[in-house]
Nucleic acid binder design. Structure first.
Length: 302
DNA sequence: CGGTTTTGACCGGCGC
DNA sequence: GCGCCGGTCAAAACCG
C-alpha cells in the first residue's frame, strides 16, 4: 500500500476561523461580549478539530494495520512465486524475440498507488518499497528518452474470468478500433483509442493475462491532453464495488500526476475541505477501511 | 441519425 | 524476398 496517498487531514481548511489567542482584548464591554461569543464558538471549533484529529489518527492506524497485513500477504505471495519462478522463466522465454513495446510494463502498481498529495513527500521511501514489492505484478524498467515519446503504463485489473468483454472501466471514454488474437496469448487483445481522438493521442490495449486469466492487462500509451474522467460517470459505469476502488485508485493516481501542474491553491483548499468534511463522517471512515481491506484481500488472492 | 463495435483486409517491421 | 506478426484501417452492423 502506498501511504503517500494519505491526505493531510490535520490541515485546517479554514485557518481564518481559528481563534486568535493573541488578539487584544478591547476595553469596551461591547467588544468583550463579542469576544466571549467568539471564544465560545472557538472552543466548539477546537473540540470539533480535536474530534476530527482523533478520527484521523484512528483512520491512519487502521490503514497502518491494513498495510502491515498487506505486506505480510505480499511477502507470502512472493515466496510462493519465487518457488514457481524457475519453471515460469523457462516457459516464458519467447521463441522469437521481436521488437515490442520497449517500455512495456512501465506501469504504476496496482491498488493504492501514487496518488500523491503535497503533504506526502515523507512517504517516498514507502512508495519505492511498495513499487519494488510489486515488481512481480507491475514492473518498471529504466526509461530511455528515445523510447519515452509516449508514456506507457500497464495496469493489471482483476476481473471475473467469465467476463469476456475486455473492458477496463477507468472513467475515460474509449472507442474500440480493433481486436487481434496474438501469438503468445490465446485470448484476444482489444485496441482502444480515447474518444477525444484525434485531439487526444492516448491509446489503450486490453488483454487477459495468459498466466492469470482472472487478470486483465491494460496498457496505456500516451497521456490525456484533456480533463480527467468524471468520477460520477465512473461510478455509474462500474460493475462492482471492489473493481471501482481498484480503478479509481489506480487511474486516479495517473490522473493526479497529469493534473498536478494545473492544480492551484484554490483546489488544494477545496480538497482539504472535502477531506475535513469526509472525516467527520464515521460511516465514511468505516467504508473506506472496508474498501481498502477488501481490495487488499482480493489482491492477495491473485 | 450519429456514435460505437465488429471483423476481415491491409500495412510495415523484423527475422530468416 | 518471403512469411510471420502486431497494429491499424474502414466498411458494415449494431445500438440508443
Amino acid at each position: 500500500m502506498d501511504c503517500s496517498s494519505f491526505l493531510d487531514l490535520n490541515t485546517n481548511p479554514f485557518p481564518e476561523m481559528l481563534p486568535k489567542k493573541e488578539a487584544s482584548v478591547s476595553a469596551s464591554t461591547h467588544f468583550k461580549r463579542k469576544w466571549l461569543e467568539q471564544d465560545e464558538s472557538a472552543s466548539e471549533l477546537r473540540e470539533e478539530l480535536n474530534r476530527v484529529n482523533s478520527e484521523n489518527k484512528k483512520l491512519n492506524e487502521m490503514l497502518a494495520t491494513v498495510h502491515e497485513n498487506y505486506c505480510a500477504l505480499r511477502h507470502q505471495l512472493e515466496k510462493l512465486q519465487s518457488r514457481q519462478s524457475p519453471e515460469i522463466s523457462q516457459t516464458e522465454q519467447p521463441i522469437k524475440k521481436r521488437k515490442q513495446d520497449p517500455d512495456e510494463f512501465l506501469g504504476f502498481p496496482i491498488g493504492l498507488s501514487s496518488g500523491k498529495t503535497e503533504n506526502s513527500s515523507s512517504n517516498d521511501d514507502q512508495q519505492q518499497q511498495y513499487e519494488q514489492k510489486n515488481q512481480l505484478i507491475s514492473c518498471k524498467r529504466p526509461v530511455t528518452d528515445s523510447f519515452n515519446k509516449a508514456k506507457v503504463s500497464t495496469v493489471y485489473v482483476p476481473t471475473d474470468t467469465s467476463d469476456t468483454s475486455l473492458t477496463v472501466k477507468d472513467g475515460y471514454q474509449w472507442r474500440k478500433y480493433g481486436q487481434k488474437v496474438t501469438r503468445d496469448n490465446p485470448s484476444p487483445r482489444a485496441y482502444f483509442r480515447c474518444s477525444f481522438a484525434p485531439s487526444c493521442p492516448v491509446k489503450k490495449k486490453v488483454q487477459r493475462s495468459a498466466e492469470d486469466p482472472s487478470l486483465l492487462v491494460a496498457t496505456y500509451e500516451g497521456t490525456h491532453n484533456h480533463l480527467g474522467p468524471n468520477a460520477s460517470e465512473c461510478d455509474a459505469t462500474s460493475q462492482g464495488g471492489s473493481s471501482t476502488v481498484t480503478l479509481d485508485l489506480v487511474h486516479g493516481s495517473h490522473r493526479l500526476a497529469l493534473e498536478k501542474n494545473e492544480r492551484n491553491t484554490m483546489q488544494d483548499v477545496l480538497v482539504q475541505q472535502m477531506a475535513s468534511s469526509l472525516t467527520k463522517d464515521s460511516k465514511f471512515t468505516a467504508a473506506l477501511a472496508a474498501a481498502i481491506s477488501g481490495r487488499l484481500m482480493e489482491q492477495s488472492r491473485t
